[in-house]
């Protein structure tokens, strides 16, 4: 078992005929992801070639789901249309099996569009949204697995560490660090760096805690908002598995947006120091440098009798 996405998950790609959609759909197929088709309004009936594998294109998510019975949909449509693409997917999953995972990779979605989209998803309880502005989710298998997003598949291996992060490349760094001590991953999730997004840290921690395959967790936060503090407080009460944490942005000046739309220290709130203090208070093993995540994780595993 992994969380939310099984190794053999059936996946649709919204925006499959666009540059980004086509490129990453091909990469996902290469990794071993079961891409069962895609959606581009007005291009239904066509097929696309994903590195030798042919995939059907549908006009709508409703059509695509009834034809494929997919478990998840990944969104690569441009920012002006991403909010609606999320709602279309949520509506279609709710009307089909009532369950589904939507992963929105798109960067630059307006915040008010996300307020609408997250409310729409929240009103449909079986539907989960990951992102936007995130690398996606990956559940590595013994061979292949399900890679849904833009992360480099080859750095991962199946194992027992759950990884959750707001950042893309920093997630890869964390994955690399687990590999450096010979540990693979159960599932890795990039929740995205936007101010308003779907799945949060607490959802991921709860799922990792309940997942048998996961034995320890790496959680990577960054400045802005209070999601890390809330997650730490929650973990203290509810998570028994060891957690290793890192927070990026200790040197970020207040009031400046650091790349990610959500990475801003506003009114003195959202600093790295507050987040690290919250981590430490919750018994989370904190790495001060991402190059130390492996070493800190190793210690945490040893302390828990897992190594």
């Amino acid at each position: 078992m992994a969380i939310w996405i099984e190794e053999n998950a059936k996946v649709l790609v919204q925006g499959i005929t666009g540059n980004q959609g086509m490129f990453h759909a091909t990469k996902m197929v290469e990794y071993g992801t079961d891409i069962v088709g895609g959606v581009t309004p007005g291009k239904g009936g066509q097929t696309v070639d994903l590195g030798g594998v042919s995939a059907p294109v549908f006009n709508s998510m409703v059509e695509a789901l009834s034809a494929t019975g997919a478990d998840a949909s990944v969104i690569y449509v441009p920012p002006p249309f991403a909010g609606e693409a999320i709602m279309e997917a949520a509506d279609a999953f709710a009307g089909a099996s009532g369950e589904g995972v939507i992963i929105c990779i798109t960067e630059g979605v307006p915040t008010l569009d996300m307020i609408k989209a997250t409310a729409y998803v929240a009103a449909r309880p079986g539907i989960r949204l990951i992102g936007p502005n995130c690398p996606g989710i990956i559940t590595p298998g013994e061979t292949g697995g399900a890679k849904i997003g833009i992360m480099p598949g080859h750095i991962h291996a199946k194992g027992r560490i759950g990884v959750v992060s707001k950042s893309g490349t920093l997630t890869y760094e964390a994955v690399d660090q687990t590999m450096s001590i010979g540990e693979g991953q159960s599932t890795c999730i990039g929740i995205g760096g936007d101010p308003v997004n779907g799945t949060g840290f607490i959802d991921c921690l709860a799922a990792f805690e309940a997942d048998e395959q996961t034995e320890a967790i790496v959680m990577i936060g960054e400045i802005g908002g209070t999601a890390e503090e809330d997650a730490a407080a929650w973990a203290k009460e509810n998570v028994t598995k060891p957690i290793v944490g890192f927070v990026a942005g200790a040197t970020a000046p207040p009031g400046k947006r650091m790349g990610h739309a959500g990475a801003i220290i506003a009114g003195g709130k959202g600093t790295a120091a507050e987040k690290v203090a919250a981590f430490e208070a919750a018994g989370i093993h904190v790495a001060n440098d991402p190059s130390e995540i492996g070493a800190v994780l190793l210690k945490a595993l040893q302390a828990a009798g897992l190594r």
């Binding site: 950042s167 893309g168 920093l170 990475a263 440098d289």
Partner: peptide, 23 residues
């Protein structure tokens, strides 16, 4: 490459006694 890693890079420069000039 990447906003999170860029912030982490600044932090680590500081951790080892330097001061970052930019993000």
């Amino acid at each position: 490459n990447g906003a999170g890693l860029a912030m982490a890079t600044m932090d680590v420069i500081k951790l080892y006694g330097g001061e970052p000039a930019n993000f």
